[in-house]
Amino acid sequence: MISHPTAAELSEAIAAFEAEHAIPGDARQTFLARVTDNARATLAREAEHGARLEAEAVERLTKLMGETGDYATLNAELCEALRDGAIDPQDPALLAHLRATAIGQIAIDQPGYGGLAALLDG
């Protein structure tokens, strides 16, 4: 469900970093090590919640689009409908779906992000 990058791409990038020779005290490498830790945590959250979130998204999309299909198909159709103006960007049913989508993905990518608290606050 989640792309740009997919979980497989993240795993690949983690493995590539782990295969590099450590340079003690190198600022860039220290920074990249921290990014790698974050990537591992993201993958763990995705493994735990990804499938459920995708199933929920398919359910919402089925209602919103009035069609059946897998996540990729329905999501692509929604994007098309927004692009050509068939769905208004401020349509309440659309916004409800987008809201749930955003909350689901931030829970995997960055659960501590302040924007989540801001959205739930309003």
Binding site: A102, Q105, I106, Q110, G115, L119
Partner: peptide
């Protein structure tokens, strides 16, 4: 996704 949650808000 951080920008997406901000945009929804």
């Amino acid at each position: 996704s951080e920008t997406e949650i901000d945009l929804v808000k």
